[in-house]
């Protein structure tokens, strides 16, 4: 797939349609997000591990108000870009999305709801994919078990804000997690459970299930459980699945009455 993708990107670059291609570059045996501007560099293009590419796109679109970029996107990257566009954080007209599918191993690791973008430029998407239901064990717990579980998990929190920093959907300039009205400054662990509840709630209807927050967590806190449960709630209560089509809007921001 890598060779095929390189060929595809070379053509795209030659077309002169884009100022550069946002993708991963391998340097000294490690991958890093990079803006490819020259076809010769594409030899160093690589595909793994996953990095939050939508955030890179947002940064670059902000830095250059006019340029058009291509971006190599997985399913989650595309979902993030769509949701960001709804919140006016990226201009999809300035991005050429080059979709690639995830293989089964990666999809399983992420418990990804849809491990491929809407249009796959190279490679073949997984057929008959069904993500593991990571919320199942938690739905079955009694209330006091849940509370004890989260108390234990969240007590490990290092207040690094990594879950927020890594999240492609956390783009607020002033973050409520840093507002001392809600969360006392300078306490470790941060106050239970308000810090993590605010984060989870703010992502309701925004979280596109990329898993970056949990991967960024030094303390291995299963943040994806909360995210997944809330994604289900949004679907059950409002029929809304974030990251889908541009016409669907997050119901928490609309003025319609709840049905």
């Amino acid at each position: 797939m890598e060779q095929e993708l390189k060929a595809h990107l070379k053509k795209l670059m030659a077309s002169g349609d884009v100022a550069g291609i946002i993708a991963l570059k391998s340097e000294r045996g490690m991958a890093k997000p990079y803006l490819f501007a020259d076809a010769s560099e594409l030899e160093c293009l690589c595909l793994t591990p996953k990095y939050p590419m939508a955030s890179v796109a947002r940064l670059l679109l902000d830095e250059d108000g006019a340029a058009r970029f291509a971006i190599v996107c997985r399913g989650c990257d595309e979902r993030a870009l769509r949701e960001l566009a709804k919140r006016h954080q990226v201009d999809l007209d300035r991005l050429v999305i080059v979709g690639i599918p995830c293989d089964e191993e990666m999809a399983r690791e992420c418990a990804c709801p849809e491990p491929f973008p809407s249009v796959v430029a190279v490679g073949t998407k997984l057929e008959q994919w069904e993500a593991e239901d990571i919320g199942a064990a938690y739905r079955a717990m009694e209330l006091d078990e849940k509370l004890a579980f989260w108390k234990h998990q969240l007590e490990k929190c290092n207040k690094c804000y990594g879950c927020r920093n890594a999240c492609p959907m956390c783009f607020c300039k002033d973050c409520e997690l840093e507002n001392a009205l809600w969360v006392k400054h300078g306490r470790l662990p941060p106050e239970f459970p308000i810090y993590h509840m605010i984060r989870a709630f703010h992502l309701a209807g925004k979280c596109i299930a990329c898993g970056e927050c949990q991967r960024a967590c030094p303390s291995d806190i299963p943040l994806m459980v909360l995210n997944t449960l809330l994604r289900e709630d949004m679907e059950e209560l409002f029929g809304y699945v974030s990251g889908t089509g541009a016409d669907a809007e997050n119901p928490l921001y609309t003025k319609e009455e709840m049905q």
Binding site: G29, M30, P49, Y51, L59, N158, C160, Y161, R215
Partner: peptide, 22 residues
């Protein structure tokens, strides 16, 4: 320099950082 981005393949941080690193 715009910001810090954790490196997922670093054997020490494994893509995690503390608030100072970030």
């Amino acid at each position: 320099a715009k910001s810090v981005l954790p490196c997922k393949e670093d054997p020490i941080s494994e893509g995690h950082l503390c608030i100072k690193g970030w």
